[in-house]
Nucleic acid binder design. Structure first.
Lengths: 213, 213
DNA sequence: ACCTGAACACCGTTCAAGT
DNA sequence: ACCTGAACACCGTTCAAGT
């Protein structure tokens, strides 16, 4: 005779081991979100699938994130932190300020190539992630890393004096465009070749100008 | 007494006026799609809403487009055509090749500012729109417009000889990055100010280099 | 506090059916 | 050929309920 009660009590026995309190559900959701975005992209990413992977019901995430956008903003904030770290790590090897500018840009592109899913969420989310306080601050810190390279170059005489902002914006546009076109596979080279292109030609062209011989 | 049959026959009377054959449903859908994307963005854009606006049932679009992506690809193809036109129109006013290079980049940014919805679909669609034949050709034609400016500048002596490709790629990255950051509202200026920034500083910085005094 | 299942109003896509 | 309504398997989000 099939004893339903056995299965029922077995099922009940499993749950009480960790009935609630996932431990750290918030972090688990964030991790699952990053992994899912890496697999299917930020657009196909769904909150319900994230919950499934974290082993909770489809609305448990609402305890930790107000909505889908807030979870994406958390992914973006993590991304801005990694971007800043990538630029700092790369820059530190430079001897001159101009060399550090070059390496900082290299770090920006390297981040995009290593974490394309973060990069995409940070810059292509349907909403402006920097509207979320933690993202706004992290984004400003990342930009400040680049501005600092300009200031150093000016102090060393490698770049003209004056407001560093215009040069920071053009630098940003250059590396951002290259990084973005690379991970979107729009360039006539493999993404892995883009850092080599930047090292061998791109950085120098941005520093010395398109018209330079 | 309420005569239901009257209403029923009135409803029937409306339909036969244009029962099928929307005239040109394909173009109507494309137009509705562009308008909808402009309103809600490419992510919130839905095929069902496009159909609603075109006045057809939610699956009538499948007669003209295989799926949602194919309609987006059609929007992107239209966008690449307008981008090429914008660059050509702007370039034509230049006296020297370097001036035409500058104006071509200006046309690129102007297109993004004028048709941000097309620009976004062209470059941020979840799938690679250039996989669609008509988009691929239109995208290559747009890029070729930029390469041509480099070749002209080389012929005139304004840029060093050699493969124009590396300079075309760096030029593309610069204007693409500026355009993209502008319409994403990530720059510390209003989108309308970005063309002025390009005219007053950006283009010169790209041509003469960040380190130039 | 934290999590659940049921429910609501949507999607994209498919299919058999109508003219 | 071109369009329709019904159906399927999904979403994000809300809510009353359980521990």
């Amino acid at each position: 005779m099939l004893r339903l009660s056995t299965f029922v009590s077995e099922n009940w026995a499993v749950k009480p081991d960790r009935p609630y309190h996932h431990g750290n559900l918030k972090d688990a959701l964030l991790e699952a979100a990053v992994a899912l975005i890496a697999e299917v992209g930020p657009q196909a990413f769904t909150l319900r699938e994230v919950a499934r992977r974290a082993g909770v019901s489809h609305n448990a995430p609402y305890r930790h994130f107000q909505d889908r956008d807030e979870l994406l903003a958390a992914v973006a904030a993590q991304g801005f932190g990694r971007l800043t770290a990538s630029m700092r790590r790369a820059s530190s090897a430079g001897e001159t300020a101009l060399e550090r500018w070059r390496l900082c840009g290299r770090g920006y592109i390297a981040f995009a190539l290593e974490w394309p899913e973060h990069f995409t969420v940070m810059f292509e989310a349907a909403f402006d992630v920097s509207q979320y306080p933690e993202c706004g601050a992290a984004g400003r810190a990342a930009f400040e890393t680049l501005v600092e390279r300009i200031r150093e170059a000016q102090a060393e005489g490698g770049m003209p004096e004056g407001d560093p902002m215009p040069r920071a914006l053009v630098s940003w546009a250059g590396v951002h465009g290259l990084a973005k076109l690379a991970i979107s596979r729009r360039l006539p080279m493999e993404p892995e070749q883009v850092l080599g292109f930047f090292d061998g030609f791109g950085a120098e062209a941005m520093l010395r100008g398109m018209a330079a011989r």
